[in-house]
Nucleic acid binder design. Sequence first.
DNA 1: AAAAATGATGAATGCGTATGCAAACATGCA
DNA 2: TGCATGTTTGCATACGCATTCATCATTTTT
Lengths: 353, 353
Amino acid sequence: MAERKVNATSTQVAKLAGVSQSAVSRAFTPGASIAESTKRKVLQAARKLGYQPNAIARSLSTKRSKIIGIVIANVTTNPFYPEVLDALSHRFQQRGQRVMLFVVTRDQNLDDILPQLLEYRVDGILLTAATLSSAMAHECSRLGVPVTLFNRSVPDTNASSFCCDNIEGGRMAARLLMESGHHQVAFVAGSRDTSTSLERERGFREELKKHGLEPYIEMGKFSYQGAFDAARKLMRLPKSPDAVFCANDIMAIGVLDALRHAEQKKVPEEVSVIGFDDIPMAAWPSYNLTTIRQPIERMIDSAVNDLLDRINQNTIVSKQELVRGDLVVRFSTKLPSGLSSGYVISTSETRNV
Amino acid sequence: MAERKVNATSTQVAKLAGVSQSAVSRAFTPGASIAESTKRKVLQAARKLGYQPNAIARSLSTKRSKIIGIVIANVTTNPFYPEVLDALSHRFQQRGQRVMLFVVTRDQNLDDILPQLLEYRVDGILLTAATLSSAMAHECSRLGVPVTLFNRSVPDTNASSFCCDNIEGGRMAARLLMESGHHQVAFVAGSRDTSTSLERERGFREELKKHGLEPYIEMGKFSYQGAFDAARKLMRLPKSPDAVFCANDIMAIGVLDALRHAEQKKVPEEVSVIGFDDIPMAAWPSYNLTTIRQPIERMIDSAVNDLLDRINQNTIVSKQELVRGDLVVRFSTKLPSGLSSGYVISTSETRNV
DNA sequence: AAAAATGATGAATGCGTATGCAAACATGCA
DNA sequence: TGCATGTTTGCATACGCATTCATCATTTTT
């Protein structure tokens, strides 16, 4: 059982292999100038000692931590975000970056979190479902740390951002509802201070207005329960809505459950419901939710590529990308006469702003 | 607009403040021996330069990274795990630890992931929904890195582990089903190689056996869809089951949907369904799932405390904790004659093994 | 065969911080 | 005033690696 060795260092490996510490370093640096023979010697000695390069020391030396800071919210309340996190994590992983994670709650101030990331000299920062203060944005750019926003639109910063075209999504929802003959519609918002919710609302309103309609607005707090309660309020209205568009799927599902189980309403016969995101649950037979799908994989790919490019090429130019969502028509909405049942998915596209 | 300063160092701050670099270091080290007056000078200079200590350098020097490695699986397929992640992340956060995250898929080998964590000299490792090879366990203990398993039972390692009492949970499910007069039951397993699923199955079988019953077993692959398919298979059986116990809630929900929407079965009138975890969805009116609740917060608290204690006190003793779950009776199961409708929650307790 | 180019190697240094140690200083007490 | 005690301070060094530079060994060129 012999050894009680702990974290061998490159110097120890060097001694055992009969070479210099530099040689050990080179053996573990792809593309470094080192003879095949000495490399073998080094690796053998390394194995014997259970040596593994110390990434902390390397980071200090290279001034690259190979760590990406990810800040994410709503992980437990919206199944959309675990998917985002999963995809992000895998992408960075396979691109050789580690992930330092911060899960934040709505009331947590990002300005307290970011310094903790910067402390570790992360190579880049990815924020999702979180808004960046301009002070912090400035701080990041001062430090040369690229920032990418996912699913939040930019203030005036030079952070990149990758979003679904929320305004157009709102319009699509409005069009579908109007084409299928609804006259009194409602919007269940997430909150008053989130770009996603505001933009979806805006597109929805705009399109409705063209036809002289105006939606009720109710707060759903971005949660199942909040939307459940919102739906009940809507149904108490003198002229209750015959269609409800929700700022995301989880709220749409809350509305659906409220309508069916608390209000004894038939969906879609009496009330249509439409969501946003297309989370897996939306396709479950209990819900069969009509929704606007966010092309998550594509968006994540772009976001990750952009961030890594800016890190590696030291590019300063940031990018604002808007990705068109797909309308997925299921059975929570009445069908417009022109459409047959089942799926109808509009083609999607990516647009640079 | 002046400065284009980038990442000031303690030496620069020292110069500006007219003190030594040591003084700067001490100003940022709680409890260090430094006069109040010089501390003020330092902090002022630091603010002026936008200085923030470099955690990487500190880690190298102190041999403490203040980073916890978290490995987690099933983040997108089981809502239970985002909750776990959220709780873990917050606890570590408020205890001054950062989190390095690895999201793994079932087919990914942990033995490829752990080295990536060890490379960064994480202070501790928390694995959830992931199994540790004994080689890697040995490697960690060799390096003095404490490991904690959450929701997986230990092989023979000296890793700590925090689990729900799955066997007892299985028994509780069996008892409830038998008391409410079921005669042909089934178990929808997750997989054949996961302790949680196996233990829940074992407890379930044991208790049934006492009364001469034996369950059908079907694989649900730990997913909604897998369980959906499993339920359909079960219903094709010559003597189809009148009750189904699932290794977790997400599968129970898949079974429920299959029964109601694909098999036109009434739940609980024709078939009872019972799950495990008590994820938020279980309480939704569409499902109203009877289940065994895992006291997540309590378990996480214990796990985090244990891991941090072992890190700080350099304790070697690991801990195996088994937490009793609570039976939450909702409306997906027929009620035994003794019980009235609504909730029945058994008291829970923690047991050390 | 000599000169030039190429490749491999090790010594030395730097990355930014923490900390042991000894010196300097302040304080209390007799 | 003198000495003992306690507090601050700076110097020097270590942490583990990457990398520059000069040196030396090898190969290629003419």
